[in-house]
Design a protein around this nucleic acid. Sequence first.
DNA 1: AAAAAAC
Length: 508
Amino acid sequence: MTFHDFNLHDDVLTGVDAMNYQQATPIQQMAIPKIIEGKDLIACAQTGTGKTAAYLIPLLDKISHAGHQHTSTLILVPTRELAKQIDEQVEGFAYFVSATSIALYGGGKGENWDQQRNALTTGADIIIATPGRLMAHMQLGYVKFDQLNYLVLDEADKMLDMGFSDDILKIVRELPKNRQTLMFSATMPGKIREFAKKLLTNPDEITLAVSKPAEKIDQQFYLAKDHQKLPLLMHLIQQANAQSMVLFTSRKSEVNPIVRALTKLGYEAHGISSDIEQDEREKVLRGFKNKQFPILVATDVLSRGIDIDSLSHVVNYDVPRDAEDYVHRIGRTARAENTGTAITFVNEMDMQRVRKIERLLDKKLEKRAITEELGLGPAPSENGGERPGERGRNDRPKSGKRNDRRPERNESPRSEAPRPEAQANADTPRPKNRNRKRGGRDGKPGTPRPEGTVAAQASGAVEGEVVANPAVGTTEGEAKKPRRRNRNRGRKPSTQGEGAPVQPSIEA
DNA sequence: AAAAAAC
């Protein structure tokens, strides 16, 4: 089923075509007709299923029919990066529709505030916002919701987890009652259902298979104590055909130390967490999406919803406490038609959490113990955390003195690892990518970018290779997305092919 | 024993 089967407005279809969306995913097939029909909707859909397009496309269709003289649509999301990403996606889809959008979120040294306020005085058809910043604008009277028709709650379960439920209720109190409300959630526990009752009217419900990671993801688990993780990671990077990797840690305090350690070992890495300045977060994410460096270290701020094109590896430096977050984290890879590898490090303390994941996935997960053979000392016990009362007796490495030692400072883990030739890796066919096939929309070659594996980039073994830059509508960042409609509302794009804006370079 | 989100 393609998007041409939905009877969409021509302008919307042109935008959908330009974004190179062809086949509708299951959630899109189910949601789009219902949304067009005007039904309230609860949709339970896992990440990476095309959820955003499932509501953006039909809403744009309605907006394009309506004549867009007011803020008709509010989309609430849990994180700033998600707000920005959805805003960018709107701009792609709405390119041929006279619809404008703006993302409202915090951070950014006050400049963002002024920009947002100014943009709001012009008005926007679609507002995508994190709750706190939206409330600030509302309190100052900068937003007018009196003509709002559509409310979307994206990642609703996450927003409730984050304690946004009161804020959301407060916001919704200011919205017209006769609106269409759409709620998307990865899970549908009772709490969400109750919450939905307060906000939705007689909703239809769509449920897709939940909490199952894509089959295409190769999930690997390695038993590792904390001090073994970095050398083990080095070994795996050397061994893997890793093009581009996101490394998740559950603690923001670990982001910078890991970045520093990787940098010291010759890998270019940058971090994102709530402790990092918003400007830096955005610069880092943009640079990573544009493949300017191979390793992104992040907290769970990025575990949900963020699209990164052709990400070959996700590393969980620890096991997330929420089994659900595991599925989200690894769902960053193997998106669209790609395959991917998810590597998870498991220490004694993490075993309980792994069991939660096993229960969620209804599957026994095999944990590999290879630290011993890498000369890193014995792996942690697999029985860790089984009975909290017996901890210390069972999990503790028995002597700890002989083998359980930290590697010496100058003892390079790489010297012990088998070293596959980077060149061979560079020749390995890459997974197919929908966006890559297209080539530049303007026919011009794109920016050259480093090519090859993460390991090769660190050693400088692979020469740069020019890869055509995909054009409009890729998920690679705003470089290829069309110019903001806010600034040239109503005009047809005449210079869509103009070169990509200069990317700020990411320097350590 | 976490993270995120407004100033």
